[in-house]
Design a protein around this nucleic acid. Sequence first.
DNA 1: TAACGTGTTATCCATGTGGACAAGAAGGGG
DNA 2: CCCCTTCTTGTCCACATGGATAACACGTTA
Lengths: 211, 211
Amino acid sequence: MTRLDPAARREQILAATLRLVARDGFARVTLRDVAAEVGVVHGLIRHYFPTREQLVAAAFDAAVLAELEDDEEVAERVEPVEALADWLTSTPREHYLVWIDAWSEAPRNPELHAALTRHHRDCERRLSRIIERLDQAGLGTSADPASDARMLTALADGIAVQHHAIGIVSREDADRVVFTAAEERLGIVPGTLERSRPTAVRGQWATNTGA
Amino acid sequence: MTRLDPAARREQILAATLRLVARDGFARVTLRDVAAEVGVVHGLIRHYFPTREQLVAAAFDAAVLAELEDDEEVAERVEPVEALADWLTSTPREHYLVWIDAWSEAPRNPELHAALTRHHRDCERRLSRIIERLDQAGLGTSADPASDARMLTALADGIAVQHHAIGIVSREDADRVVFTAAEERLGIVPGTLERSRPTAVRGQWATNTGA
DNA sequence: TAACGTGTTATCCATGTGGACAAGAAGGGG
DNA sequence: CCCCTTCTTGTCCACATGGATAACACGTTA
């Protein structure tokens, strides 16, 4: 492969790793798989990431970062109802498959566990903020936004398992479950979230074409 | 190791496999690990299970079976509130770690996916039945027991992730979240489930001492 | 007690893995 | 123009893995 800018190559390797993790899981991704996905020799991976452990850790960090990169300021400007509907539904399938795999790896991988903890706290914090704004706007009520955020986060994760991993519920049913629960919990008039369902789907990880 | 009754040895191997899956995950459990856990040579494992795939599939089937073996007739005789509190909280840590790992493996393992689907449906069905009895007894109300069961199952799974995998919430907080949500959803008077919290913890998988 | 079935062991093998290393190639600065 | 950094390749190695196989040992039955 032609010589590439180090930063671009690095991102290319990370994206390839994430695609393979989503497909095969952290435990089964090999350096040779990643190299083949990128189109280089497996020795080159080592040139950028000294060990396999550091590679997957860096890849997961990148995934967490990518998940948060959609500007929080933007989310702050949009209507709270819309922000809530978006928060509850917009995580793409590939990302959730990585989260689910990360859950299973976390108990035996301290770095991954730490990153996952940070990500989870951040998700709850963002949702909590949306709930506060919803309450302030008089569109809903919450005595304890943090508690409500925790409960809705857990519900969204659980229903994502049923949808993405087990495939026992459709996308529509999954959305309805979390929408209904959120409306009930936060005193939002029923059907509001359904009507604010976002149409666009967030991006996946880049393909082979590096930055 | 002394010669053993085939059925007993088989169960011993399955239990050892499940313990290792809970610790290391499906992908990382090797035949040699299982053999060492049992205290035999790795060739013997093959004598009982022709391939590694069949071993882990059989182990997961055994786990699903063990989860359901607590007699449904017994659950039918106990008070519905007690049954609900038990359902929402009684899955032991080791079992949940296996479920979480199974979620991450399901998309690429058809047999495991099938077993997981059966197990999930059964869990929902049982909870649905409890909710029906609760409604009939006038202790709660549910317009759609199946929907409520689906939502509470998802919530319980999601909060189990937060508790067991990420460790971001304590056992007490986890129970409180699902109890509060269930009471709210089913119109149970607040605090009822907390007072019915089961004291006994269900068993883990047997240790080395075979049947 | 001798023969037989089978649980059990001890090795052997091909393969895939993470990592190490030296040589080649592409570009940038003197 | 040459040199020098470093991106990139090809190859090598020690090791672990799943699986195969033959010999061994223990219990049962005739």
